[in-house]
Write a protein that binds this DNA or RNA. Structure first.
Lengths: 333, 333
DNA sequence: CCATAAAATGGTAGCGCTGCCAAAAAAACT
DNA sequence: AGTTTTTTTGGCAGCGCTACCATTTTATGG
């Protein structure tokens, strides 16, 4: 009931007939492309209105050369990072009449491969991915496809075509340097699946290298082979401190994890930062609102999405753009 | 550089030629539809592999009757609620070879209208919306369109076709009854834009009605005409308490806002729940991890997405499904 | 071995639109 | 008024695929 399915939709040909003009004329008027007289436009628009015509973009895309679909293949929707990127890209794309389609990989390269294949079947104008780590077949497909590719949120590696983001290695290093400068010497790490979230992996390894280079190797670490979450952060810190109680600072793989650690300290009465310092990554808004502002690194996620979209609509030449990041001193480290 | 754009993609006709079979045979093999012999399948698949053929779904959709696109028109991506719904729907849709496309309304009915129009141009199999409140033109377009409609996350109203969710009115009532049962009598409210987020509006009005019906009218309220956020929750509680210091409980429009309120109490040393009780809505995971588990209502968001998708792939008849919710007593109220 | 059913295959007309080209109409000049 | 130029239009061939139907091939049965 409710909807009247099964009816056939109004076509451009019917509009043309109703308006008493040719099909191409209707097409021109509707796309505001080519020339037509004012009275013709009115007649067409009247017919469109009367018949309730909705152009069929499937047919339009097939007939014309380039599509206006942009395919996002992202690791997760629960992670606010990717939602921010999508939000940033959304406005620009919409403005230019592009349509976003998406699929979620759950940080699995094999799934990414399958989803990219599936996406390419829609002949998108561009495929937007997270980072540089893809399977060989994914890369091969992307190269063979007649579309742009944007790798987002990382610049440490070799881009396929376009890349927009920031250096996770530099972020890891900056975090380590900050903690060292503050005088912390017993530093631990609580993180999530580093093999799958390769950007977190880059931060971690760069963080460790910087510590070692300064003669303060990482004291201990607790890594879950799962997605990050507030809960994992809390549990991770609990385990870490049980094993190595004399830590004076902990670097978390991101702000969600750090918030979990913060809650753990609150619950146990561990005083931050004098007893234990906490440092995160992402610079989520909620970090600012915590009773003590979270020490973290703010990344330009929305800007990444915006710029990625802009490069596509402008058909910019291949390039890598590093948007940088901002270290937020906060009050937890 | 990088990608080799401008080349023309391999077509089904080329595969047919290379395999020495007819086009329809290739089509049948690829879709595993109709009958064909084992050796034919092998020859086709070999040709597909060798040429790197990727089927063109644009053409396929145009040629066949029904599309396999599902259009999500959602208020926000930053709000984890909608990300959860998408996540729930994603797996089911993917499994059945449906493709999700989406657009974000920012809680603006006029934008929703424009985006629905734009989405219908893709001739989706279904349009998935949040709630029942749409402009007249949106409703008209949806009725005229030859596609299913799913209104999600609400069941208080009249459905266009399918609806999956839970009762926001019942949730508001349950929250009020819980606080009353606990003995709170000076109850305040901190919320965000109720005109735009009509589901929050329904919870609020139902909450107030229940309080009044029990002779305990709402003592005070602080409502921002903006989107919800942790920060707004904190500021809102600050203002509310400045004006009405004797409140003994505060109902927040959602868990994000409640978390802000919680942070405010922590920062000011307000003891929860003895000095002030806090109650939220959504049942986010982080509520469980807080030093004191957040008292809130957990909604089946992922399940809503899953079921919505399932109804579409099963082509279920029009119906409204109430998935209910769960009140989490927690430790903050 | 031939009749009959079943399985496998190819040809082709669209799906609804856009892009190209030629034709018609209107405008701008001598 | 007769040209030339410019603007506006309509016709129609695809875009790459699927659906339908006709045909061929293979299996089945007496």
């Amino acid at each position: 009931m409710g909807t009247s399915r099964n009816q056939t939709a109004v076509t451009l040909a019917q509009v043309a007939e109703a308006a008493g003009v040719g099909e191409s004329t209707v097409s021109r008027v509707l796309r505001n492309h080519g020339s037509y007289s004012g009275k013709t436009r009115d007649r067409v628009m009247t017919a469109v209105e009367r018949l309730g015509y909705v152009p069929n973009r499937i047919a339009g895309t097939l007939a014309s050369t380039g599509s206006r679909l942009v395919a996002f293949v992202i690791p997760s929707l629960s992670n606010i990072v990717f939602a921010d990127v999508l939000r940033g890209a959304g406005a620009t794309l919409e403005e230019h009449q592009y349509q976003a389609v998406f699929a979620v990989t759950d940080y699995d390269p094999a799934r990414e491969e399958a989803l990219v294949a599936s996406m390419l079947a829609w002949r998108p104008a561009a495929v937007m991915l997270a980072g540089y780590e893809h399977t060989e077949r994914t890369i091969k497909m992307l190269r063979a496809a007649n579309c742009r590719v944007v790798e987002m949120l990382d610049v440490d590696g070799t881009a396929l075509d376009l890349a927009v983001g920031f250096s996770n290695r530099a972020a890891g290093r900056a975090s380590a340097e900050f903690l060292l400068k503050r005088g912390y010497r017993r530093i631990g790490y609580v993180g999530h699946d580093l093999d799958r979230d390769t950007r977190a992996g880059k931060r971690y390894s760069s963080f460790c290298e910087t510590l070692s280079a300064n003669g303060v190797p990482l004291a201990d670490r607790e890594i879950y082979r799962e997605a990050s979450s507030v809960e994992r952060g809390r549990l991770g810190l609990d385990l870490l401190l049980a094993r190595t109680p004399d830590l004076d600072a902990v670097y978390f793989s991101n702000d969600d994890m750090a918030l979990g650690g913060y809650f753990h300290c609150l619950a146990l009465g561990i005083v931050i930062p004098s007893q234990l310092a906490i440092f995160g990554y992402n610079g989520l808004d909620l970090g600012r609102v915590m009773p003590q502002a979270l020490s973290t690194i703010r990344t330009p996620r929305v800007a990444t999405g915006q710029l990625a979209a802009k490069l596509i609509v402008d058909n910019a030449p291949s390039q890598v753009i590093d948007l940088g990041f901002e270290l937020i001193e906060g009050a937890t480290a």
